[in-house]
Amino acid sequence: GTEIELESKNGQREHYTATSEDEARKIIEKAVRRGIKRIELRGASEQLIRDMQEIAKQIGLQYRTDGSL
């Protein structure tokens, strides 16, 4: 699965493990709508990382991946 670590603007951290790319995408989209400061992805697919970079650029988000592409 993909591990997703979120940090909201007030510094609250949340951790999710998505079993599918679809689920990961839903978690990320929800977080973005809620207003999130930072997202870290571990074990994400190349496609998901590309999507994440696109989203991050659009809304000026900090993100990090573990680089295991």
Rank of each mutant, 00 (worst) to 15 (best):
T2M: 12
E3M: 08
E3H: 10
E5G: 07
E5Q: 09
L6M: 09
E7Q: 08
E7P: 01
K9P: 10
K9W: 14
N10M: 08
G11D: 02
Q12Y: 09
Q12R: 12
R13P: 03
E14A: 09
H15Y: 14
Y16V: 04
Y16I: 05
Y16Q: 01
T17H: 13
T17C: 13
T17I: 12
A18Y: 09
A18I: 10
A18K: 03
T19M: 12
S20Q: 03
E21L: 11
E21S: 06
E21P: 06
D22H: 08
D22P: 06
E23Y: 04
A24W: 03
A24N: 00
A24E: 00
R25I: 08
K26M: 12
K26Y: 11
I27R: 01
I28E: 00
I28R: 00
I28S: 00
I28C: 03
E29Y: 14
K30E: 13
K30A: 14
K30S: 14
K30I: 11
K30W: 14
A31H: 05
A31I: 06
R33T: 08
R33L: 14
R34I: 09
G35V: 02
G35H: 05
I36K: 01
I36L: 11
I36Y: 12
K37R: 14
K37N: 08
K37Q: 09
K37A: 10
I39H: 00
E40T: 15
E40N: 13
L41W: 02
L41Y: 02
L41C: 03
L41R: 00
R42G: 03
G43R: 07
A44L: 02
A44Q: 02
E46M: 12
Q47W: 05
Q47N: 10
Q47D: 08
I49S: 07
I49E: 05
R50W: 08
D51E: 10
D51P: 00
D51R: 11
M52V: 15
M52E: 00
M52T: 08
M52H: 00
E54K: 08
E54I: 11
E54N: 08
E54D: 09
I55Y: 13
A56Q: 03
K57S: 08
Q58A: 12
Q58T: 11
I59F: 15
G60E: 10
G60N: 08
G60Q: 06
G60I: 07
L61E: 04
L61Q: 03
Y63N: 09
R64C: 15
R64F: 15
R64M: 15
T65P: 14
T65G: 13
T65R: 04
D66L: 04
D66H: 06
D66C: 15
G67T: 07
S68M: 07
L69T: 06
L69R: 02
